[in-house]
Protein backbone atom coordinates (compact mmCIF):
# COMPACT_ATOMS: atom_id res chain seq x y z
CA UNK A 1 0.00 0.00 0.00
CA UNK A 2 2.81 2.42 0.91
CA UNK A 3 4.52 1.90 -2.44
CA UNK A 4 1.26 2.55 -4.27
CA UNK A 5 0.65 5.81 -2.39
CA UNK A 6 4.21 6.97 -2.96
CA UNK A 7 3.87 6.20 -6.67
CA UNK A 8 0.67 8.25 -6.70
CA UNK A 9 2.49 11.13 -4.99
CA UNK A 10 5.46 10.95 -7.39
CA UNK A 11 3.11 10.80 -10.38
CA UNK A 12 1.17 13.84 -9.17
CA UNK A 13 4.31 15.93 -8.68
CA UNK A 14 5.50 14.80 -12.13
CA UNK A 15 2.18 15.82 -13.71
CA UNK A 16 2.25 19.28 -12.09
CA UNK A 17 5.91 19.71 -13.12
CA UNK A 18 5.28 18.75 -16.74
CA UNK A 19 2.30 21.10 -17.04
CA UNK A 20 4.06 24.02 -15.34
CA UNK A 21 7.17 23.47 -17.48
CA UNK A 22 5.27 23.95 -20.75
CA UNK A 23 6.36 20.56 -22.06
CA UNK A 24 2.71 19.53 -22.43
CA UNK A 25 2.47 21.97 -25.35
CA UNK A 26 3.51 20.10 -28.52
CA UNK A 27 4.10 23.43 -30.30
CA UNK A 28 6.69 24.29 -27.68
CA UNK A 29 8.34 20.89 -28.11
CA UNK A 30 8.56 21.30 -31.88
CA UNK A 31 9.93 24.84 -31.45
CA UNK A 32 12.55 23.45 -29.08
CA UNK A 33 13.65 20.93 -31.71
CA UNK A 34 13.54 23.60 -34.43
CA UNK A 35 17.05 24.94 -33.82
CA UNK A 36 17.37 26.51 -37.27
CA UNK A 37 13.99 28.26 -37.09
CA UNK A 38 12.00 29.89 -34.30
CA UNK A 39 14.06 28.15 -31.59
CA UNK A 40 12.59 28.07 -28.08
CA UNK A 41 15.28 26.81 -25.65
CA UNK A 42 12.83 26.52 -22.71
CA UNK A 43 12.91 22.72 -22.68
CA UNK A 44 16.66 22.82 -22.00
CA UNK A 45 15.68 24.43 -18.72
CA UNK A 46 13.17 21.63 -18.04
CA UNK A 47 15.72 18.91 -18.71
CA UNK A 48 18.48 20.86 -16.95
CA UNK A 49 16.38 21.54 -13.85
CA UNK A 50 15.25 17.94 -13.67
CA UNK A 51 18.73 16.43 -14.21
CA UNK A 52 20.47 18.73 -11.70
CA UNK A 53 17.82 18.09 -9.02
CA UNK A 54 17.84 14.34 -9.60
CA UNK A 55 21.64 14.08 -9.75
CA UNK A 56 21.96 15.77 -6.35
CA UNK A 57 19.14 13.74 -4.78
CA UNK A 58 20.37 10.41 -6.22
CA UNK A 59 23.79 10.96 -4.56
CA UNK A 60 22.11 10.93 -1.16
CA UNK A 61 19.57 8.24 -2.01
CA UNK A 62 22.14 5.77 -3.38
CA UNK A 63 24.23 6.26 -0.24
CA UNK A 64 21.44 4.35 1.56
CA UNK A 65 21.38 0.55 1.55
CA UNK A 66 17.86 0.37 0.16
CA UNK A 67 14.79 2.49 -0.54
CA UNK A 68 12.40 3.20 2.35
CA UNK A 69 9.56 0.95 1.17
CA UNK A 70 11.37 -1.78 -0.76
CA UNK A 71 14.20 -4.24 -0.27
CA UNK A 72 16.30 -3.11 -3.24
CA UNK A 73 16.81 -0.35 -5.74
CA UNK A 74 15.45 -1.52 -9.10
CA UNK A 75 18.06 -0.24 -11.52
CA UNK A 76 18.50 -1.21 -15.18
CA UNK A 77 20.94 -4.09 -15.55
CA UNK A 78 21.60 -3.51 -19.26
CA UNK A 79 24.83 -1.61 -19.79
CA UNK A 80 25.53 -2.33 -23.44
CA UNK A 81 25.20 0.37 -26.06
CA UNK A 82 23.82 -1.74 -28.89
CA UNK A 83 21.97 -1.29 -32.16
CA UNK A 84 18.63 -1.76 -30.38
CA UNK A 85 19.30 1.24 -28.12
CA UNK A 86 20.38 3.35 -31.09
CA UNK A 87 17.64 2.36 -33.56
CA UNK A 88 14.97 2.61 -30.87
CA UNK A 89 16.15 6.07 -29.86
CA UNK A 90 16.32 7.22 -33.49
CA UNK A 91 12.74 6.01 -34.01
CA UNK A 92 11.55 7.69 -30.83
CA UNK A 93 13.15 10.97 -31.95
CA UNK A 94 11.37 10.74 -35.33
CA UNK A 95 7.97 10.26 -33.68
CA UNK A 96 8.70 12.99 -31.13
CA UNK A 97 9.63 15.46 -33.87
CA UNK A 98 6.62 14.51 -36.02
CA UNK A 99 3.91 15.05 -33.40
CA UNK A 100 5.62 16.93 -30.55
CA UNK A 101 4.68 14.38 -27.89
CA UNK A 102 6.92 12.14 -25.85
CA UNK A 103 5.27 9.63 -23.48
CA UNK A 104 5.12 11.74 -20.27
CA UNK A 105 3.41 14.85 -21.69
CA UNK A 106 1.14 12.69 -23.87
CA UNK A 107 -0.18 10.84 -20.80
CA UNK A 108 -0.33 13.93 -18.54
CA UNK A 109 -2.24 16.03 -21.13
CA UNK A 110 -5.13 13.58 -20.96
CA UNK A 111 -5.91 15.41 -17.70
CA UNK A 112 -6.91 18.69 -19.34
CA UNK A 113 -7.06 18.34 -23.14
CA UNK A 114 -7.77 14.72 -23.98
CA UNK A 115 -8.51 14.73 -27.75
CA UNK A 116 -4.99 14.57 -29.27
CA UNK A 117 -3.26 12.89 -26.28
CA UNK A 118 -5.72 9.97 -26.17
CA UNK A 119 -5.04 9.16 -29.83
CA UNK A 120 -1.29 9.43 -29.23
CA UNK A 121 -1.29 7.32 -26.04
CA UNK A 122 -3.49 4.61 -27.58
CA UNK A 123 -1.20 4.39 -30.63
CA UNK A 124 1.85 4.45 -28.37
CA UNK A 125 0.54 1.44 -26.44
CA UNK A 126 -0.04 -0.43 -29.71
CA UNK A 127 3.52 0.45 -30.79
CA UNK A 128 4.93 -0.92 -27.52
CA UNK A 129 2.88 -4.09 -27.84
CA UNK A 130 4.00 -4.47 -31.44
CA UNK A 131 7.66 -4.28 -30.43
CA UNK A 132 7.19 -6.81 -27.63
CA UNK A 133 5.34 -9.19 -29.92
CA UNK A 134 8.03 -9.01 -32.62
CA UNK A 135 10.77 -9.42 -30.00
CA UNK A 136 9.02 -12.48 -28.59
CA UNK A 137 8.48 -14.07 -32.01
CA UNK A 138 12.13 -13.60 -32.91
CA UNK A 139 13.43 -14.92 -29.57
Amino acid sequence: MKTILSALLAGTVFGVGLTLSGMVDPNKVVNFLDITGNWDPSLMFVLGGAVITTTIAYRFIFAQDKPLFDEDFHLPTLLKIDSKLLSGSIMFGIGWGLIGYCPGPAVASIGFRPEEPLIVVASMLVGMLLFRTIARLRA
Binding site: K2, V51, P67
Partner: peptide, 21 residues
Protein backbone atom coordinates in the same frame (compact mmCIF):
# COMPACT_ATOMS: atom_id res chain seq x y z
CA UNK B 1 8.43 28.26 -15.33
CA UNK B 2 10.32 25.67 -17.37
CA UNK B 3 13.12 25.52 -14.81
CA UNK B 4 10.60 25.29 -11.95
CA UNK B 5 8.70 22.54 -13.77
CA UNK B 6 11.96 20.69 -14.40
CA UNK B 7 12.88 20.89 -10.71
CA UNK B 8 9.47 19.39 -9.81
CA UNK B 9 10.07 16.56 -12.28
CA UNK B 10 13.44 15.99 -10.57
CA UNK B 11 11.75 15.97 -7.15
CA UNK B 12 9.26 13.40 -8.45
CA UNK B 13 12.04 11.17 -9.78
CA UNK B 14 13.81 11.49 -6.41
CA UNK B 15 10.65 10.61 -4.43
CA UNK B 16 10.11 7.48 -6.51
CA UNK B 17 13.73 6.35 -6.04
CA UNK B 18 13.95 7.23 -2.33
CA UNK B 19 10.67 5.55 -1.39
CA UNK B 20 10.22 2.74 -3.93
CA UNK B 21 13.66 2.37 -5.51
Amino acid sequence: TSLAGGILIGISASILMLLNG
